[in-house]
């Protein structure tokens, strides 16, 4: 095994490389198009499978049957959350960001989204509502909802 013993890490050559493609264009799919159109009109869709409601909307149900698209009207609540202090590269954020699993009491699942709230005010069960972008800025993407914010009392 002479080779292994003789070699030093500094002897090993490294070659720089980069994986790139001009771009990916991801299709939304036939049901995704309907979900996108609803978002542009300010509606969030789920899928009804028998008497169960699932969020987010999908083409098919867990049992593989075709689901029925329905609007989820709320009331929305925080089902779980986390608070982000650093960005992807480990740099400290100016202001912590609250990310939550937002859903409704009866629905299975939910949306992962931002909640505009002070980190010490967020809790499971917090009542929230979506805040949409102005209509002309919407593109049928989940970011058409800018964030969820706590429902004002009174």
């Amino acid at each position: 095994m002479s080779l292994w013993k003789k070699s030093r890490v500094s002897d090993v050559v490294h070659v720089e490389g980069r994986m790139e493609t001009e771009r990916y264009i991801y299709t939304p799919g036939p049901v995704g198009v309907k979900v996108a159109e609803a978002l542009m009109e300010g509606r969030i869709m789920g899928v009804k499978c028998g008497n169960k409601l699932y969020i987010p909307a999908k083409t098919y149900c867990p049992d593989h049957s075709e689901g029925e698209l329905v609007e989820v009207k709320g009331p929305w609540i925080v089902k779980s959350y986390t608070i982000i202090y650093e960005d992807m590269y480990g740099a400290k954020l100016d202001k912590p960001v609250v990310i939550a699993l937002v859903g409704t009491e009866e629905a299975h699942g939910g949306l992962i989204h931002y909640v505009e709230v002070e980190p010490d005010k967020v809790k499971v069960g917090l009542k929230v509502e979506p805040v949409f972008r102005p209509k002309e800025e919407r593109r049928g993407l989940i970011t058409d909802v800018m964030f969820f914010k706590p429902v004002e009392h009174g």
């Binding site: 991801y26 299709t27 939304p28 799919g29 036939p30 049901v31 995704g32 198009v33 083409t59 098919y60 593989h64």
Partner: peptide, 15 residues
């Protein structure tokens, strides 16, 4: 090019 997403294609063929 098909309109369906990859998982929708898998679902259609499976069905």
């Amino acid at each position: 090019r098909l309109l369906e997403t990859p998982r929708e294609l898998a679902w259609e063929a499976s069905r």
